[in-house]
Design a protein around this nucleic acid. Structure first.
Lengths: 250, 250
DNA sequence: CGAGGGTTTGAAGTGCATCAAATAGTGTGG
DNA sequence: CCACACTATTTGATGCACTTCAAACCCTCG
């Protein structure tokens, strides 16, 4: 259980200043949070908290990937989201009687900034700018979830994979590019709501249909238009749709 | 296009006072909104706004049912939610550059209170209590959406129907009861992410499996435990889970 | 009564899941 | 640097749930 602040001089306040929803907060805010926070470093597979746990802290991802999920009595997992650099999670416990509404686990080696919920609560209740920023961010997340539900009902497995790949590209620069899957294919499959076997087969289909090239976890896309035409035809959003996920509070 | 205020003396302020997220607002708030709002009465099938429209007003449902949805170029619809008495919708446009992020249509005869977005924006920006109340409500909605996604990936068609029926019952009073489907089965099917034919067949299966009795749109449930056991076994939430949807801002 | 929508039923097809097994890839200790 | 163990991924065969298309039925309402 690594609890590290390797660089004693990492300035947490400075990092927090770059987080979109904190943009308009004052110096006092950053000072307060900076001194009440610390960096945690975890290996892959570390459970951060479980659904129903009492929550006292929330997290900002410095680097790595974290899976949020819930599970049924029978052990089936529903993945809520998989987050990375710059994204926050755990703060919604504030609105659920300080209980975590889902479980969280690292899926890659990860550096987290751990922040106190109590301070956040205080701040939200007195700092209207922050409350409004969080509202905005939540509203954007809501839209993202709507889209998630839509994808699962209107897109087939190959299209969902294609859509995911497109989000990894720079959607405003349509040049050929090469991307790397951020975590393993089994996890990606469940993130997309399908079985690993289905993922594998659907990816081959996608390859045949759009001319992408797959080598392990690296994927080369020559023709982004072709890929977006294939993937986005069964979606209500128009193609450069990446911004929907940007800057999300989670 | 009925735009009616049949009872000239309906006191909109009084209605707004009973809306959960406005609970802690002051008298000035209700006076301001009361005089800037009006009641609209619509038949079934009235389109209230379309995705992408410029938004100037948001709505509180006095009575009836409203469908929120998006559609693809090919005409496939993704239903986002179907709302009723006491629920609000359209206010999230504030966080999407004043553009409606979905379309809205009445699916039953409906009375709406139409309220000005501009006033809401003003109020959110100055009234921290309101902003926090909205945050809380949005967070609850987020949890509801998570559950929605989970249902679609872990529950089969019959279980989803069973879960929907349970939400129509009083989950804290397990006595036998009779419920009426709030809108037609075709719409309910798409609300639950399935085809009408599948709905019909899945409902028969549910009948056989749990002993409910179906007569048209009326359903009698003798044994709620039996129904919840069947439906909730593939869900991560424990049975009396109704509160998840309660008091939602939308 | 008859028209038209909502609902059910039947038959056939499709996509994804499941189970089983082969293969590729990775990290380990020798 | 190789062999082994272990995991991730792919492939094959089969089954099931849901969809699709078609037609019948039912109900309501003019």
């Amino acid at each position: 259980m690594a609890l590290v602040s390797r660089n004693k001089d990492i300035n947490i306040s400075e990092i927090l200043r770059r987080v979109p929803i904190f943009r308009n907060c004052g110096d006092a805010f950053f000072t307060k949070f900076g001194s009440a926070s610390h960096v945690e470093e975890h290996d892959k597979g570390k459970t951060l908290f479980l659904s129903g746990d009492a929550a006292t802290r929330f997290y900002l991802i410095g680097e790595g990937w974290v899976k949020l999920y819930r599970e049924t009595a029978e052990g089936a997992q529903a993945i809520i989201d998989i987050l990375t650099n710059g994204q926050m999670f755990g703060e919604t416990a504030l609105f659920h009687e300080d209980l975590c509404p889902f479980s969280a686990e690292t899926v890659e080696p990860t550096k987290l900034i751990s922040l106190p919920l109590s301070l956040l609560k205080q701040e939200i209740n007195t700092n209207n700018t922050l409350a409004v920023a969080m509202l905005t961010s939540m509203a954007r997340y809501r839209r993202y979830q709507d889209q998630e539900i839509e994808h699962r009902s209107l897109q087939n497995a190959s299209q969902r994979i294609g859509c995911f790949l497109l989000r990894l590209t720079d959607q405003y620069d349509l040049k050929p590019c090469s991307i790397t899957l951020p975590y393993d294919k089994t996890l990606l499959a469940s993130r997309l709501g399908m079985q690993p076997e289905t993922f594998s087969r659907a990816l081959s289909k996608l390859k045949d249909a759009t001319g992408i090239r797959v080598k392990g976890s690296t994927i080369e896309i020559d023709d982004i238009d072709r890929l977006s035409e294939f993937s986005c035809s069964a979606c209500s959003s128009d193609f450069p749709c990446k911004d929907i996920t940007a800057g999300t509070v989670c």
